[in-house]
């Protein structure tokens, strides 16, 4: 019975990690649709993102409730609950970014599109590596650090791209200052996704060290 109880929580954690991966993919595909001006695809991704965020919220609360009510993993309970809440920030950030595009409808200059797409891809890669790091944290913590290192790497690459794009924006004399500021806001929004991934990766690293016997 106890083994069955553990299996259900394990499965729910796996489903939750899959939702993080899906959110990261929708983040990428949704923003690419917006930049490529594919409105129908963007609208579909918006709906998907909303549903995934809701599902992830319910699932996380269920996992947290079970871990607390069944007195599971007392030693690392705090770390795991903290980790799940931080992962929720990753999903929330991806939703916020994609919804901001929908609400504010920023005009993306053609010349910036390739760099922004590259920035989006670097952020998605950080999300993928984070999902792997979380999976390894739960199943085989020996391999966790490889993936957290990848998260740090992609976040750093995203930072460099972010700075480069902002420089391009503010050196383009054809753009209005208000447009420049608006674009800068969105570039920072996109990059905040990998920042969020980095925060979670740092948590995972510390929790992994604490878990060593």
């Amino acid at each position: 019975m106890k083994i069955y109880r553990s299996k259900i929580i394990e499965q729910n954690i796996d489903i939750y990690i899959n939702l993080v991966i899906t959110a990261s993919l929708i983040f990428e595909e949704g923003l690419k649709s917006y930049i490529m001006e594919n409105k129908e695809s963007f609208a579909n991704h918006l709906k998907d993102m909303d549903r995934i965020e809701n599902d992830a919220d319910k699932l996380r609360k269920g996992i947290e409730h079970r871990i607390y009510s069944k007195m599971l993993i007392p030693e690392s309970r705090g770390d795991i609950l903290g980790l799940l809440e931080n992962l929720d920030n990753v999903i929330n950030t991806s939703k916020q970014v994609i919804f901001s595009f929908d609400i504010e409808n920023p005009a993306i200059p053609k010349a910036l599109k390739p760099s922004i797409i590259e920035l989006i891809e670097q952020n998605r890669k950080a999300g993928d590596s984070l999902a792997n790091a979380v999976t390894y944290y739960f199943r085989n913590s020996e391999l966790t650090t490889n993936e957290t290192e990848k998260v740090f790497f992609y976040e750093h690459e995203a930072d460099k791209l972010e700075t480069g794009i902002k420089r391009k924006i503010f050196s383009d004399e054809s753009l209005e200052l208000s447009h420049k500021i608006h674009l800068r806001f969105f570039i920072e929004k996109i990059a905040s996704f990998s920042d969020c991934c980095e925060d979670v990766a740092e948590r995972i690293l510390i929790s992994t060290i604490k878990k060593e016997i």
């Binding site: 553990s6 929580i9 394990e10 993993i73 739960f138 085989n140 020996e142």
Partner: peptide, 16 residues
């Protein structure tokens, strides 16, 4: 420690 390395188990199952 060897068993922890060689038989990776989910953290929840490890707890049980």
């Amino acid at each position: 420690k060897f068993l922890y390395k060689k038989l990776p188990t989910h953290i929840i199952m490890q707890d049980e």
